[in-house]
Write a protein that binds this DNA or RNA. Structure first.
Lengths: 189, 189
DNA sequence: ATGGTAATTGACCATTGTTCAATTAATGGA
DNA sequence: TCCATTAATTGAACAATGGTCAATTACCAT
């Protein structure tokens, strides 16, 4: 009634995550079923549960990848050869772009309230924020205090959260994003 | 196999909404089923579909109520006898306080994402925002343009959304809220 | 009384996340 | 080489979900 497949065709966490990411990004977390993911891979839905405890676990694995991506993006900007003021601008704008380019993941990272599994990820967001805050601090010539940086972050988050909800792309709102960032930069002048 | 109940015990939109609100507030939208709501009321789940087209429809009726409450709060502040600058401050701070004093309402209004009918009920939020924007506009001596007011709103929203998620009360974060508002007011100076 | 309408029921449907016994491929030791 | 053990996969099965609808009953106007 059931069988194991040849070893070179075996499923892996990586393959599942790849297919799942594609589907989650396209249709959103709630509108993607484990059966759809399995079908995409040509496997039975049960097999996914051999590799991930449940759907949320699979999704959080993706979210972890995304936080790493966010960190990477930040460091990319910091490595660029720009004046501090320009870099600062790019860091803020980059945050918005990241959020809107990875909407379903951003929601899980920083929007959706889910007590049961929120604790699972608590380290990563704090860790990522710390890097963000450090960057702002140094790029501002060590003028910005912690509260001000937090204020800036919350304002960026508001932008991303709102446009995530309405499903706009970064391109849709880029002009407004740049304007928002310019306003935030005034606090650091 | 089925029966209609005595007229004084009849179900109504209001009764359903009351029970639904209670449950949504406690457990969140996704974790409340139509059967739970019906059980709470002592009715069959099918009866709710006589009064509301579907779960989302019921949900959005609650959202409308909450927006009316927000409008009321705004007008309360505007009626106060204060200098425009003080009033402006109170409008911004009042928005945050409303959000954190009515966290589950706020989530329903502006955080929770429900793709299916998101476009359907865009009137109320827009209407409420329009009042908010008008207030800011006049209190700023007609200096603020539309984009700047929108920027301010998004920044306020970020504050509320974040602390809603972590479940902090207004009292918990009042100092930070006042600081955030002071920053936002600089854009209008 | 009677007929029409309004409200309620619960069986029913398709779909979901999840579990698990059964099954088969791979592996390694004798 | 053979056999026991393990690893991976299957799909039937389960409970819960949102939603539909014919049947049923209370109400009301005439």
């Amino acid at each position: 009634m059931a069988a194991r497949k040849a070893v070179e065709q075996e499923l892996s966490k990586e393959k599942i995550m790849e297919a799942a990411r594609e589907l989650f990004v396209t249709h959103g977390y709630r509108h993607v079923s484990m059966r759809q993911i399995a079908k995409e891979l040509g496997y039975s839905h049960g097999s996914i549960y051999y590799h991930f405890r449940n759907k949320a676990d699979l999704f959080y694995s993706l979210v972890n990848q995304d936080f790493a991506l966010l960190d990477q993006k930040l460091e990319e900007v910091l490595r660029q050869d720009l004046e501090p003021a320009r870099k600062l601008e790019q860091v803020l704008l980059g945050y918005i772009q990241f959020g809107l380019d990875n909407q379903s993941h951003y929601e899980i990272m920083l929007v959706i309230k889910d007590e049961e599994l929120a604790s699972k990820l608590q380290e990563k967001p704090n860790q990522s924020y710390e890097k963000f805050a450090q960057a702002i601090y140094y790029l501002s010539g060590q003028k910005a205090n912690a509260a001000l940086i937090w204020s800036i972050f919350l304002s960026l988050h508001g932008f991303v959260a709102h446009y995530c909800r309405s499903g706009h792309s970064f391109a849709d709102v880029e002009t407004m994003a740049r304007f928002h960032v310019q306003n935030l930069l005034k606090w650091l002048a």
